[in-house]
Design a protein around this nucleic acid. Sequence first.
DNA 1: TTTCCTGTTAGTGT
DNA 2: AACACTAACAGGAA
Length: 310
Amino acid sequence: MPELPEVETIRRGLSKVIVGKKITDVDIDTPKSFQGDKSQVIGAEIIGIERRAKLIQIKLANNSNNLNLLFHLKLTGQLIYRGAVPLRSSSYEGPRSDSFSGGHPSHDCLPAIANAQALRAGHTNLLNSNTRIIFTFNDHSKLFFNDMRKFGWCKVLNNNAAALLFTEYGLEPLDKNFTVEYLLSHAKRIPNRNIKQFLMDQTIAAGMGNIYTDESLFEARISPLKKIKDISLSEWQKLIDSMILVLKEGLKYGGTTDSDYVNAEGKKGGMQNYLKVYHRTGQKCFSCDGKVERIVVGGRGTHYCPVCQR
DNA sequence: TTTCCTGTTAGTGT
DNA sequence: AACACTAACAGGAA
């Protein structure tokens, strides 16, 4: 689920609480998850947080370098913020009003005890056994990067390297330049590609993922198997409108909780209550008398109504 | 117990 | 070029 709406929800939440703070420490529990030199970011101030595709960019300023922390959450990454714990607190006191989390929640969101290694000094606020990196700020609040499957990463990149990374992505679907003309410019090179894989291609539609692609195709009543060359101009426009509609709805509800995602305020997202095909295999189509089917397209589980999606 | 499935995306081989 | 398949990893569900 960390697709565009989920990542953007996390970005918005983090922007409210860590901009202006200085990084005072970085604890790396899983070296694989962190690429770069942590000493470069210690002492730096967070001056802004942006999102590009499914990447979160924490912009830093320090004496000499313009560095960034780039995060990709992949399937199970989380970014969880915790406000400073009162000095005398020796045990977990439950959620604090200034605490929130983003990404996937964990079932064992109790601190300190999940991982024996975490009990060593400095790790007493570890949120769970999947914590890979802990950032500490000057006010003693912390940002936890958790990732059960270890696919996600955090990289230290300067502005040029970050900009270079971003060039690998296509336009954002919510960008005003995401037009029929833009999509056709990509489509003409791959006429036999099916539309599902086309939309999932990050160099074409940055930030689209499996859930919102299936939902957008249903909204546009286009089959995920339809070939690019068979899509009419009006269908392209309808598809763009549908993508915008579905993505904005995802943002409005703070993302989709498929299994256990929570939004930026520590609560579940709400979009799962409005999904029309994703994970509704065998259930009645909302638009006709057909049933939602699950097929595999490009190696991904794909949900659609074969009756009204053509 | 075993097998299949999952939000992503490099990388390999045909 | 297009496409299929695998690996990275962990755990829930059937």
